[in-house]
Amino acid sequence: MILSLYIINKAGGLVYQRDFNEGLQRLSSNDYLILAGTFHSIHAITSRISPTGNSDGLDLLEADGFKLHCFQTVTGTKFLLVTDPSHHSVDGILRKIYNLYSDYVMKNPFYTPEMPIRVELFDQNLIRAVHTAL
């Protein structure tokens, strides 16, 4: 079960947030922004404390009530997908979301890069994709 999706731009700002299912605490929009900023910094630090030298940042976080998967694109945009703990592979759906993002957000001439995403077609297709992936 997919609980929610966050998209963080390369500067650590939250550009998109959507809950799909119940299971997480609802926060104020300010708290979501703080959360995204914190995650962005933690992601950077986790690649530095690796005991073996070169490491990428955090890609899966396991907690009591959920799992958080992080997919970072080459341009530095991060897609965070929160699922319930029993969910296994999210690679497929994350790629799918990235495709939708490129198609409906990046190719939208009215969208300013790095700004919050308010694109109706993206919303619709995203919800459809997540529901078929369940």
Binding site: T46, S47, S50, P51, T52, G53, N54, S55, D56, G57, L58, D59, L60, L61, E62, A63, D64, G65
Partner: peptide
């Protein structure tokens, strides 16, 4: 005790 573990590609 919500947070259990995290993983990167090397550790």
């Amino acid at each position: 005790d919500g947070f259990l573990s995290y993983r990167t590609n090397t550790y």
